[in-house]
Nucleic acid binder design. Structure first.
Length: 193
DNA sequence: GTAGGGATAATCT
DNA sequence: GATTATCCCTACG
């Protein structure tokens, strides 16, 4: 049986625990064009006392969702052209989140190929900007609940073997050495080995 | 197959 | 005015 993950689940674990528990679960997005989904194979954790975290320097209009309760979406634009999708986590008001970095495409692969303009299955969702484009997630959806359609997570039946390493794209002096990146060992769908 | 750099604009100082 | 939790195209073996 696969059920939708409730807001209570997101609140029951620390950000670091949640980032690992999400691996193997299915992210689903229902749109007018069709339904897309994929298995979460790569995540990164951003903690409140972590210099790489958007919430580190306090609350701003952009990062406000991060300071709300766990189980909501935080979507932001990066490098002017790409978007990243996060799930808010940690205690209410804390400012923590889990970045979803890669998916293994499952449902709506035709639609993903059309949105991405690529055919290779491993090139549809193998990066934070790519998966947002493939899934049709938009900035407007920042602040939406992840416990109800159209955007939600379903339970997986996998207990994947997890590999832990350092995060991608973090500049120097920003806690780039912290082991806050997690991915499913051996997956061909991650953004980088 | 790998490496390097440009694109491009919201956000914050 | 600097920075950025990225992607893609081009050049070269």
């Amino acid at each position: 049986m696969s059920g939708i993950i409730s807001e209570g689940f997101y609140r029951s674990f620390s950000t670091l625990e949640l980032a690992q528990k999400l691996l193997g679960m299915e992210l689903v997005h229902e749109t007018a064009e069709g339904t897309c989904s994929g298995i979460i194979v790569e995540t990164e954790a951003y903690l409140h006392n972590d210099r790489a975290c958007h919430a580190f320097s306090g609350i701003t209009p952009r990062n406000r969702p991060m300071f709300g309760p766990a189980g909501f979406a935080y979507v932001y634009q990066i490098y002017g052209i790409h978007y990243c999708f996060n799930m808010v986590s940690g205690p209410d008001g804390c400012g923590e989140a889990v970045l979803i970095r890669a998916l293994e495409p499952l449902l709506g692969i035709d639609l993903m190929q059309a949105r991405r303009g690529k055919n290779s299955i491993t090139d549809l969702c193998s990066g934070p900007g790519k998966l947002v484009q493939a899934m049709g997630i938009r900035k407007m959806q920042s602040c939406e609940s992840l416990a109800y359609p159209p955007l939600y997570v379903r339970n997986g039946n996998l207990t994947p073997e997890i590999h832990t390493t350092t995060r991608i794209g973090i500049g120097k002096g920003k806690d780039e050495h912290l082991p806050y990146r997690f991915y499913i060992k051996g997956s061909k769908f991650i953004s980088k080995p």
